[in-house]
Simulated assay, not measured.
Amino acid sequence: MYLCSAKKEYLSIARSHSVPGSIIRNFKEITKVRLSVSVVFSSVAGYLLGAETIDYYILLLLCIGGYCMVGASNVFNQIIERDLDALMDRTKDRPLPAGRMGVTPAFILASILTLTGIVVLYVINPQTAMFGAISIFMYVSLYTPLKTRTPLSVFVGAFPGAIPFMLGWVAATNDFGIEPGTLFMIQFFWQFPHFWAIGWFLYEDYKKGGFFMLPNGKRDKGTAIQVILYSIWTVLASLIPAVGVTGRLYITPISAILIGGIGIWLIYYAVRLYKLKTEKAARQLMLVSVSYITLLQVIYVVDKFIR
């Protein structure tokens, strides 16, 4: 009797300790914490580029509001795609298809994150809240349903995907002009080689869910050529601030050389995908593309504060 009682007590304690851990795990997975943090990083970089003096309170609001908006987009996306996620190896263990979370609590979470995000960004300034709202609307209402209908979904998804870098500048200045427009353009072009690389090495898995992620719908020469072209446009757009035609957004010749160097690195791996046409080459390009945009943002910010 004593052993049975002790065992029940132990199991009860174990469950009570596992519940918070399970909630945290589900929250991290359904909001895609790594993706959300990387998006917030872009917003912070944009803020640091636009701010004349750093207001850490505004910076904190930007991080909180940015995470809420991206997290909400991801939750709504997973609610809509839960049945398709169950078909793919990459996504079948997500909270909704795995049954660890119901649709109703997920919808409540997404709604709370959306409202919180808009309110927090509005405290910064109305324009920031507006662009945040546009981002979540385009991602959920346009990009998500188009993924199973047309390869143009990547083009549509590139718009909300390019907003965070620009959003930081708008949060710092309450103004939209040539500077945030340039930041938007850089991250807009970058979306294509990045997501087409993902679409290439996850082609078979995406096929199970009926997603069209490659421009030609195939892992062929035509797709690889477009990856190269958009990689080149990404690098050229990244070098425009060195010419001095983008207002307060400016990089020195030394930084331009560094950007050119990592740009050659990006284009090299894009050409490598064209030559090899393998999943490994596509995965390497994806990793290089992530490194490229991160290093670019770091170089831009460091350039501003040391010149």
Rank of each mutant, 00 (worst) to 15 (best):
Y2E: 13
C4G: 14
C4T: 14
C4E: 13
A6M: 15
Y10W: 15
Y10R: 14
I13L: 14
I13A: 08
S16E: 13
P20W: 10
F27D: 01
F27L: 15
I30M: 02
L35I: 15
L35S: 08
S36A: 09
L48T: 11
A51T: 11
E52W: 10
I54M: 04
Y57M: 11
L59H: 08
L60F: 14
L60H: 07
G66C: 13
A72W: 02
A72L: 05
S73L: 07
F76T: 04
I79E: 13
E81V: 15
D83M: 14
L84I: 15
D85A: 11
D89Y: 09
R90S: 09
T91A: 06
T91F: 08
D93A: 06
P95G: 03
P95Y: 03
L96K: 01
L96T: 04
P97D: 03
G102A: 08
T104E: 10
P105F: 10
P105T: 12
A106Y: 01
A110F: 00
S111K: 06
I112P: 00
G117C: 05
L121R: 05
Y122T: 12
V123C: 01
V123I: 13
I124A: 00
N125I: 13
Q127P: 05
Q127I: 15
T128H: 03
T128Y: 01
G132F: 01
I134D: 04
Y139K: 12
T144Q: 09
K147T: 14
T148H: 11
T148P: 06
T150V: 14
T150K: 09
S153Y: 02
F159P: 01
P160A: 08
I163S: 01
F165N: 03
M166T: 02
G168W: 02
T173H: 02
D175M: 08
G177A: 08
I178M: 08
T182M: 08
F184R: 00
F184Q: 01
M185S: 10
Q187E: 11
F189I: 07
Q191S: 12
Q191Y: 12
W196L: 12
A197V: 06
W200L: 11
L202G: 03
L202D: 00
L202P: 02
E204P: 06
D205V: 09
K208A: 02
G209C: 05
G210R: 10
F211C: 07
L214Q: 01
A224E: 05
A224R: 08
I225P: 00
I225D: 03
Q226C: 08
I232M: 09
W233G: 02
L236N: 07
S238L: 09
S238F: 04
V243T: 10
G244P: 06
T246F: 04
L249N: 00
P253M: 13
I254C: 06
I254W: 10
S255C: 14
I257L: 15
L258R: 06
G261E: 11
G263E: 00
W265P: 01
L266W: 03
Y269M: 05
A270T: 10
V271F: 13
K277I: 09
E279P: 06
A281C: 12
A282C: 11
M286S: 11
L287R: 15
L287M: 15
S289W: 04
T294E: 05
L295R: 02
L295D: 05
D303W: 07
K304V: 10
K304Q: 12
